[in-house]
Design a protein around this nucleic acid. Structure first.
Lengths: 102, 102
DNA sequence: CAATCATATAACCATATGGTTATATATTAT
DNA sequence: ATAATATATAACCATATGGTTATATGATTG
């Protein structure tokens, strides 16, 4: 079940997400954009796919990747909510502290 | 230099962030809140500290942890921006596509 | 059909992660 | 002083991560 935290843990995977959001890319487009080997890129793509953030379309010898936008959008807003709550809790604590101080 | 992506990659560390945001906690408070060993918790705390998200205060036999709020706030907004850009790029692509279609 | 290009996969390696148990040390309470 | 509690650390283990090279397969081009 989509662990976006795992997906985004690596900076190369984050850059891949940017690439495939901007436009559909072939695997070799992606390989060309980095200075690591094709199998290494493949593994990153596999992780992004395991986490459902990537869709692929196979055409001839090419494999096109694009963002799975609905999933990304959903997972991103969940993440924002989860991490945003941390700050809200902090604020609530400060508020409480100030109100006790009257 | 603070890799928030590493810090938040594990669900236990995310829960710890919530705990220490809500209130200052001792290490044993945190240990009590999970079903893993004290050394395992200690390692999670060490990672959160390496990434500058946690401040500690030592008092007698207790070690109090609290959120490093400014750093968390800053890193969280950077993260939001970076991951939000992915969606913006997607939207820009769709917009461009529609405008070509007139 | 042969060469080339894109992708897939196997085998390997080093390091990181996430956990354990056992034990040491320091502080506090009885 | 002893016992109990809180924390720290060492040693170990299994698995995951992030990379490599070498090679196979499949599609396209000359």
């Amino acid at each position: 079940m989509t662990d976006i935290y795992r997906a985004i843990a690596d900076p190369i995977r984050r850059k891949i997400l940017h690439m495939v959001a901007r436009a559909e890319c072939t695997q070799s487009d992606i390989v060309a954009a980095f200075s690591i080997s094709q199998p290494a890129i493949k593994k990153h793509l596999a992780i992004l796919q395991e986490e459902q953030l990537l869709l692929e379309r196979k055409q001839g010898k090419y494999c096109y990747y694009r963002l799975n936008t609905p999933v990304y959008q959903h997972e991103f807003s969940q993440l924002q909510r989860e991490l945003g709550l941390v700050l809200e809790k902090k604020l609530a604590g400060l508020k409480h502290f100030l109100e006790e101080e009257q």
